[in-house]
Amino acid sequence: MDRNALLKNKILVVGCGRFGASIASQYSLKGKNVMIVDNEASSFDKLSENFQGYKFVGDCTDISVLRKANIETAKEIIIATGSDNANILIAHMARKIFDVPEIYVRLDEPESETLLKGLKIKAIFPFELSYDEFERLGGNK
């Protein structure tokens, strides 16, 4: 195999919703090598105008799409599709099959974290974070 192919230096963002799009845009702004994948080409409209990374249309619950998106050379993957189950499946593939060094997953349901335990996968819960912010702003006193 080409030695460069094994060099893990890319950032892969899966799912171009608001969350995925803003992460990909921020990374791109910092000049990082970023690839974003979504199964709808129109989702890429959410990326910032200055986005310099790669865009790829495909369903990342399919391992062949992950391979085409160069997951083998990813040092970091941010998984943020709209489905917790899809995110868990992709995270498991990223850890157990490709062993991506850094894995972040967006989850709606706190309960969904059960299947991620012990896998060094970092979970982000937007709804809980929103609630924390709500309290910080003075809500629910």
Partner: peptide, 8 residues
């Protein structure tokens, strides 16, 4: 009919 739902 969704593979990821069956998986989880």
């Amino acid at each position: 009919n969704k593979d990821e739902d069956n998986y989880v």
